[in-house]
């Protein structure tokens, strides 16, 4: 029986930010789809926790501060078995900062750009440059952006700036990497129930949270909803899709 275009059997998928929330859900979903997962995040304890949730496979994890860019290459250099064998890269690592424009300082933009954008692009650059991704069979890069890249939200200046930078960057990346058969896409989720969104909710009154929920015809999302979308973008089923922004918002942007 054929396994169909959406399975990831024996594929090696790198997931950043796999220690919680969306990144964790993506790691789990990819393992269920048959992939081996290589996880990167700061907290070793929480990476261990994610590892314990994965379906059996040849999984591994590395505790790393992704904004210390040099350490990405150092770790990858120890993973010689991955040379030419990375089929997918997901950048789910990210941070959030909520404040009005007049409380948003240069360091806030810089922090978010470093983790949300630059570390992901740098990671992919190393994977391509050092030929971890086979340039004949190709691969897929998926970046978790946000609906905030397209739609404004009070208090999200630094965050939306960083998520907007991601979707601008992937367009150029997708063009440059197409000749190597590497596809690059972004997912733009609206509000997904994660520890990070709980942090955002703690800064706004309860009525505002309710109003936000009412803006989502299908309610808020779950991490697994983003993970399922990610499976599609990582699989051969999306082989003709690149440079795209996949909006995933429970109907938020329909109006």
């Amino acid at each position: 029986m054929t396994k169909g275009p959406f399975n990831l059997t024996d594929k090696n998928i790198i997931v950043t930010g796999a220690s919680s929330g969306i990144g964790r859900a993506i790691a789990v979903a990819c393992s269920v789809a048959g992939a081996n997962i290589i996880m990167f995040a700061r907290s070793e304890d929480r990476l261990k926790e994610t590892n314990s949730l994965l379906f059996p496979g040849n999984h591994t994890y590395f505790s790393i501060d992704l904004t210390n860019y040099g350490s990405i290459e150092k770790i990858l250099d120890t993973c010689t078995y991955l040379k030419g064998n990375v089929h997918g890269f997901v950048h789910a690592a990210g941070a959030e900062f909520s404040a009005p424009y007049n409380m948003t300082r240069p360091e806030h933009y810089e922090q978010l750009l470093r983790i949300n954008v630059i570390s992901g692009f740098e990671f992919l650059r190393i994977l391509v440059h050092k030929k971890f991704i086979d340039q004949v069979s190709g691969g897929s890069g998926v970046f978790i952006s946000s609906i905030r890249a397209l739609f404004g939200q009070e208090g999200s200046l630094a965050y939306s700036t960083s998520k907007g930078a991601l979707i601008s960057g992937i367009r150029t990346l997708s063009l440059e990497l197409a000749r190597k058969k590497i596809r690059v896409n972004a997912i733009l989720p609206s509000i997904v129930k994660t520890p990070m969104i709980e942090q955002f909710f703690s800064t706004i009154p309860e009525e505002s949270v309710k109003a936000m929920k009412n803006q989502h015809p299908l309610g808020f999302g779950e991490p697994v909803d983003v993970a399922n979308c990610c499976l599609y973008l990582l699989s051969d089923g999306s082989r003709w899709m690149t440079g795209n922004n996949l909006i995933l918002d429970g109907g938020y942007s329909v109006r």
Partner: peptide, 13 residues
């Protein structure tokens, strides 16, 4: 609601 967020950011800073 933005005032609430501003106070939280100010106190944090």
């Amino acid at each position: 609601s933005m005032s609430v967020m501003a106070i939280i950011a100010l106190v944090d800073e």
